Computed example of a mutant assay.
Amino acid sequence: MKAVQLHEYDLAPTLDSVPEPTVSGPWDVIVDVGAAGLCRTDLHIIEGQWEAIQHPSLPYILGHENAGWVREVGSAVTNVQVGDTVIMHPLTSCGLCPACRVGQDSHCENATFPGLNVDGGMAERLKTNARAVVKLDQGLEPKDVAALADAGLTAYHAVRKAAPQLFPGSHAVVQGAGGLGHIGIQSLAAVTSAEITVVDRSEKALELAKELGAHHTVLATDDASVEKQVLDITGGGAHIAFDFVGEKGAEKLAPKLIHNGGSHYVIGYGGRVELDTIEIISREISVVGNLVGTYSDLVELMALTAQGRVKLHTQTYPLEAVNDAIADLEAGRLVGRGILVP
């Protein structure tokens, strides 16, 4: 089968011919991939940022945002059957460790992470397990939802976690209205009562943000201008700043956009959060990390998607054009999410 493989860090991945995955255990599920999302994490994987955390053996197949159709199942699988349309939670969890037992399967002690430490879904077929697959409602197509498996799930997880603090009259600031951020905006509009201000350097992204539920938008020019505009709009700072960028200075600006007692939710990454301890304690601010969401988060997000309350904005590419898609993502030419279709 055709697959996009990373052979060496800091070099472009290649389209190769590789053996097809096969069922080897009772909980295995083989999926015909209908679509695989391209994520900024894939750029960081290629750069080698995840090597120290995930220790993958190169070469391996990229792609951790995947949806498709069930092709084959192991003997113990009963929650899906051949032909079902499914989206995959990014992790294949064990169900037995303490984290899994309390529903925190994204922190599973025995998980594999297709696309990060084992073969992923930028290929014609993917091997996952029964605990990772979510059956999709009729009418949802893989190419329209694949990137919700990570970008959407991560954004929704952050919003879902913050929802108790976003009561009527509260204010949320969203930094970055791209692949993650545009789902975050819709999630905020769907599950909270917060007033939403969106900051982005792209006027097109801000136009999309207004369509998706943003009450205010701020064009990201210089930090001082952004800070002044946001503080004016929010009356002194937001309750929560959702940083979907996490690098290139956004991570340093976010704490300046919240009021005393507010929270900086870190979702994007690549940069470095630096705060004086006296600022943290005197302002009583919080810095909150956000990993990919749980299986339950993904089920809830799919329900919102089926209801039409969350929609993924995409640009599709054939699998062969993976490096064109990567170039567009790196250059900021993508509005929404890049989707590879085998």
Rank of each mutant, 00 (worst) to 15 (best):
A190M: 10
A146G: 03
S170A: 15
D276P: 09
G236H: 13
H7P: 13
V335I: 15
A12M: 14
A130E: 13
R272T: 12
R160T: 07
G63I: 01
H7L: 08
K248N: 11
A158L: 04
G63C: 09
H239V: 11
L312C: 07
H107P: 01
A209P: 00
G270I: 15
T85C: 14
A190N: 14
L340Q: 06
D223I: 12
I278H: 15
K161Q: 05
G289M: 05
T14L: 08
I185C: 04
A35V: 04
L301Q: 02
N110E: 14
N79S: 12
Y269S: 13
H313G: 00
A76M: 09
D84S: 04
M302G: 00
A214M: 06
A99G: 05
A209Y: 01
M88K: 01
V341G: 03
E124M: 11
N260V: 03
V198R: 00
S286E: 13
G83N: 07
P142L: 07
D324G: 02
G37L: 01
L43Q: 15
Y156W: 11
T92F: 00
R160L: 07
A214V: 06
A177Y: 09
S263D: 11
T128L: 10
G249P: 07
L38A: 14
H171W: 10
P255Q: 06
L140V: 07
V174D: 08
G249Y: 10
P21V: 07
N79C: 04
I240M: 02
L329N: 09
Y156I: 10
E279G: 12
H64Y: 00
Y269N: 13
G37R: 04
V245H: 01
I30D: 03
P114L: 00
K248S: 11
D150K: 00
Q175R: 12
A130N: 04
H7G: 14
A151L: 12
I30L: 14
A214W: 06
V145E: 09
A214S: 08
S24G: 14
A123R: 09
E279K: 15
P114C: 04
C94A: 02
A132L: 11
I240P: 06
D10M: 14
L153I: 05
S93Y: 07
K135N: 03
V31E: 02
S225E: 14
V133L: 06
D84G: 04
W69D: 01
R71E: 11
Y156C: 08
G37N: 02
S170K: 13
V292N: 00
Q315T: 14
L312F: 06
T316A: 12
I61T: 15
T192K: 06
E279M: 12
S106W: 01
G289Q: 08
R272F: 09
M302N: 02
G83T: 10
M122S: 13
A224Q: 10
T41W: 02
E300N: 15
C100L: 06
H313C: 01
V230Q: 05
I267N: 09
D232E: 15
H44D: 15
V198D: 05
H182T: 07
